[in-house]
């Protein structure tokens, strides 16, 4: 059966949350709550109560980026110092650890920042083409709930959305 996509726009965040809770409870054919997408003009961490906890993996990128940045800097600087014997050291260590720590520290941060951004783009699915069911109202003041389900589920979706005072419901055939 072909899949349908629906985007419902709400004025009130609480109504949108109530609609999600009801969708979660209703046993709708071809609908999975994990496929539901909430679109909002601001961040609503409280929505996790109804959508469930979803993992964020950006921190792993941060850890890897920071460690790699620090290690890379230290080994680059140390190998440059250790390979250039004509630089007069006057009996001082060829690879002096305390001053090298400064550059290691700077590159630890730089690596962490760069790879965090990369992780953000990967984890958030950016850059992306905007979905056809996007409303500019979402970036203004309305909450959007995007769902997909079987054709037979469309009527149930609409009933639930209308019950929770959806301002507008957009519909599109799935790919």
């Amino acid at each position: 059966m072909s899949q349908r996509h629906l985007l419902a726009l709400f004025n009130d965040f609480d109504e949108a949350v109530a609609a999600i809770a009801e969708l979660r409870g209703a046993n709708i054919k071809g609908f999975d709550i994990d496929d539901l997408i909430l679109k909002s003009p601001i961040e609503h961490p409280e929505v996790e109560k109804v959508l469930g906890d979803k993992p964020v993996n950006v921190q792993w990128f941060t850890l890897i980026g920071a460690c790699m940045g620090g290690l890379l800097a230290f080994f680059l600087v140390a190998s440059a110092q250790a390979n250039f014997f004509s630089q007069i050291k006057g009996g001082k260590p060829i690879v002096p650890l305390p001053p090298d720590f400064v550059l290691t520290y700077e590159m630890f941060i730089l690596g962490g920042v760069f790879i965090t951004i990369l992780g953000f783009l990967i984890c958030a699915g950016l850059p992306a083409k905007r979905s056809p069911l996007y409303s500019a109202k979402v970036s203004e003041d309305q909450i959007g709930i995007l769902v997909q389900g079987d054709e037979s589920a469309v009527a149930i979706f609409k009933t639930i959305f209308t019950k929770h005072k959806a301002l507008e419901i957009q519909e599109e055939a799935g790919k």
């Binding site: 997408i37 909430l38 679109k39 909002s40 003009p41 961040e43 609503h44 961490p45 929505v47 959508l51 979803k54 964020v56 950006v58 921190q59 941060t62 962490g112 920042v113 965090t116 951004i117 992780g119 953000f120 783009l121 984890c123 958030a124 699915g125 950016l126 850059p127 992306a128 083409k129 905007r130 979905s131 996007y134 979402v138 970036s139």
Partner: peptide, 20 residues
């Protein structure tokens, strides 16, 4: 970058901003 304000985007955005 095609930002739509989805819950997934906001969730990752929050952690990224805090980390930086």
């Amino acid at each position: 970058l095609g930002w739509e304000g989805t819950d997934r985007q906001w969730r990752n955005f929050r952690i990224t901003y805090l980390t930086i």
